[in-house]
Design a protein around this nucleic acid. Structure first.
Length: 195
DNA sequence: TCTACGATCTTT
DNA sequence: AAGATCGTAGAT
């Protein structure tokens, strides 16, 4: 399938998030299908990293759409986001969970060779699965090479719920149902709060 | 400079 | 329920 064009990302983060479900991420020897995402919108979203304006960390979010934004969370986890909205607006979609399609052996080795099923449920695991770190920020996902997102058939049914880990935000933003996932999908985190 | 804390995950 | 682990942001 074709690689998604930059124009795909140049829209409101919630709209992009909805359409990213089911799409294919390829890179570093693995192929994943996006199953859960969160939208960090612009403007007026107090959970957004850009809520206090431009900083060195969130600089990618203000740049052109269709680029990666990878940041280190809790000193341990590398979080993968896709920059959305027109350039100059600080918004992104966080990739929270994926279904592994190809590269199972690689995925197992990246998590230290532990036994058991490969569960890519949770944003920290996605960063680990794709061997990402913050140096991948600004990477252009709509061009060939390295890390790319490819088109796939639209998902029929989607469930929604509040975003995870944003207790510091305003109550209305905490409650906003801007976490989206493929309905009846095994590859989803915090399933209980989705419907 | 100093300090508090985070879009998490695992283990207890 | 709490520890790991460190870069960032805001305060000093």
């Amino acid at each position: 399938m074709a690689i998604l064009p930059q124009s795909f990302y140049a829209r409101d983060a919630l709209e992009v998030a909805r359409e990213l479900l089911g799409k294919i991420v390829k890179g570093h020897g693995v192929t994943l299908r996006i199953s859960e995402v969160e939208a960090y919108r612009w403007p007026h979203d107090t959970a957004n990293h850009c809520r206090a304006g431009r900083t060195a960390r969130n600089a990618p979010m203000w740049g052109p759409p269709g680029c990666a934004y990878v940041y280190l969370c809790y000193g341990i986890h590398n979080m993968l986001n896709f920059v959305t909205n027109p350039e100059g607006e600080g918004a992104a979609v966080l990739i929270r969970a994926c279904e592994p399609l190809r590269g199972l052996a690689t995925l197992r080795s990246r998590r230290g060779g532990k036994a058991g099923p490969v569960m890519l449920t949770g944003p920290g695991k996605i960063g680990q699965a794709l061997a990402l770190d913050p140096s991948w920020s600004h990477h252009r996902l709509f061009e060939r090479g390295g890390l790319g997102v490819h088109d796939a058939p639209a998902v029929a049914k989607v469930v929604a719920g509040p975003r995870v880990g944003i207790h510091y935000a305003d109550p209305e933003d905490i409650a906003a149902p801007w976490r989206l996932a493929i309905a009846d999908c095994e590859w989803v985190s915090h399933r209980a709060s989705l419907r």
